[in-house]
Computed example of a mutant assay.
Amino acid sequence: MQRICVIGGSRYFGKLLVERLRADGHQVTVINRGSARAPAGVEHLVVDRDDEAALVAALGSRTFDTVVDQVCYTPVQAAIAARAFADRTRRYVMTSTIEVYDPATAALPTVPAGTPVPEATVDPRAWQVAMDLPWHDEAYLEAHYAEGKRQAEAVLTRAGGFAFTAVRGAHVLGGGEREFTGRLAYYTERIARGDAVAVHADALPTVFIHHEELADLLRWAATATDFTGPVNACSDGLLDVHDLTAAVAAQTGREPVHETVAPGEAASPFSFDRHYAMSNSRAKQLGFAFSRTTDWLPGAVAEALTASAAPTA
């Protein structure tokens, strides 16, 4: 049994992570602002993680084997956490994102065309941190989501006081009505209605991960290994937007209608005009076994279709 703290963990794969850690017999503490109750048998601390004094007071004398931070979006939040949990936890795992590799949001090292990027493409040890940017402004944060994650990784990497790893999750699908991004529902609903899906003329591939697989990888990163540094989390197999619409069409019985956008114009979610895939080789070398996207995608599509058809309250 380990003592594990999950910051966030009130929805989607974070909630599933908490449930699975508890089922494994770990002593779990959830920290959030009270947006959702913790499952039975899980300690719940209601506190704003942005309020450092309140966070330290709520933690009291507690110590943990691992902290899993599901909701760290800025270097300011990371710095607060680094101070609050220094010498209080042996290990700190931050949920990060594939978006740290988005070349549209930062100047990144060049990799050969068509090559899934490795973790070293964004090295948090060398990434510049700017604490004085308006990270508390919601509009600014939304527009700089990827940079916020990069800088948060950088702060926690340099913090010391605990071993740190960032799990860079691919585009997460599955979960039906719990899939709060609504991006798969966008496709199922439009294709079922016969509406056009906007795509790039030369749509390039990306990577995905099922919400249950990401919860399992976070559980593994928290409990089963002592590696440090970033690790990419994506199922095996690249898909582009045409592969995705074909998977939806196979279950709706309607052929997708594609509408090509002009260069530079916005397209549908997961239609990319740049190669946007990452390598999962490091996680495999460390011992995690990934599924294939094509194995779970039909089930995720079916869940989304069922959720779309369900009556609303």
Results as ranks from 00 to 15, higher is better:
residue 284 K to L: 05
residue 136 H to P: 02
residue 57 A to M: 09
residue 168 R to F: 04
residue 306 T to Y: 02
residue 286 L to W: 07
residue 70 Q to D: 14
residue 29 T to K: 13
residue 89 T to L: 06
residue 38 A to C: 09
residue 245 T to S: 11
residue 243 D to T: 02
residue 154 A to Y: 00
residue 272 F to M: 13
residue 39 P to T: 05
residue 27 Q to W: 02
residue 175 G to Y: 09
residue 275 H to F: 15
residue 216 D to Y: 05
residue 301 V to I: 15
residue 29 T to V: 09
residue 306 T to V: 13
residue 75 P to H: 10
residue 207 V to T: 15
residue 54 A to I: 11
residue 47 V to N: 04
residue 248 V to Y: 03
residue 164 F to P: 02
residue 27 Q to C: 12
residue 288 F to R: 07
residue 277 A to R: 06
residue 194 G to T: 03
residue 50 D to P: 02
residue 195 D to T: 00
residue 83 R to N: 05
residue 269 P to E: 10
residue 235 S to L: 04
residue 35 S to H: 13
residue 310 A to P: 04
residue 264 G to K: 12
residue 163 A to Q: 13
residue 123 D to A: 08
residue 64 F to R: 00
residue 214 L to Y: 11
residue 172 V to S: 01
residue 254 R to C: 06
residue 109 P to G: 01
residue 55 L to S: 02
residue 35 S to K: 15
residue 297 L to D: 07
residue 24 D to Q: 15
residue 186 Y to M: 10
residue 251 Q to Y: 10
residue 176 G to Y: 10
residue 85 F to Y: 10
residue 230 P to E: 03
residue 146 A to M: 03
residue 144 H to E: 06
residue 208 F to D: 07
residue 106 A to W: 04
residue 184 L to Q: 07
residue 285 Q to G: 13
residue 274 R to L: 11
residue 301 V to P: 01
residue 270 F to L: 11
residue 153 E to Y: 01
residue 301 V to Y: 05
residue 253 G to L: 03
residue 197 V to Q: 09
residue 284 K to A: 10
residue 291 S to K: 14
residue 237 G to E: 02
residue 76 V to I: 09
residue 279 S to L: 01
residue 286 L to Y: 01
residue 240 D to P: 09
residue 209 I to F: 07
residue 153 E to R: 01
residue 72 C to A: 15
residue 196 A to I: 08
residue 139 A to I: 13
residue 126 A to M: 05
residue 214 L to Q: 08
residue 102 D to V: 01
residue 234 C to G: 12
residue 168 R to H: 01
residue 237 G to M: 03
residue 220 W to S: 09
residue 137 D to I: 00
residue 205 P to R: 09
residue 16 L to R: 14
residue 191 I to A: 00
residue 295 D to C: 12
residue 199 V to A: 14
residue 238 L to S: 09
residue 222 A to W: 13
residue 159 A to Q: 07
residue 167 V to C: 04
residue 151 Q to I: 12
residue 273 D to P: 00
residue 197 V to P: 08
residue 79 A to Y: 00
residue 48 D to C: 05
residue 68 V to F: 13
residue 12 Y to A: 02
residue 12 Y to P: 00
residue 110 T to R: 14
residue 156 L to C: 08
residue 76 V to G: 05
residue 18 V to G: 04
residue 193 R to T: 10
residue 224 A to W: 00
residue 196 A to T: 03
residue 73 Y to N: 05
residue 247 A to F: 08
residue 185 A to E: 14
residue 224 A to H: 09
residue 246 A to L: 12
residue 141 L to E: 13
residue 279 S to W: 04
residue 14 G to N: 11
residue 247 A to R: 02
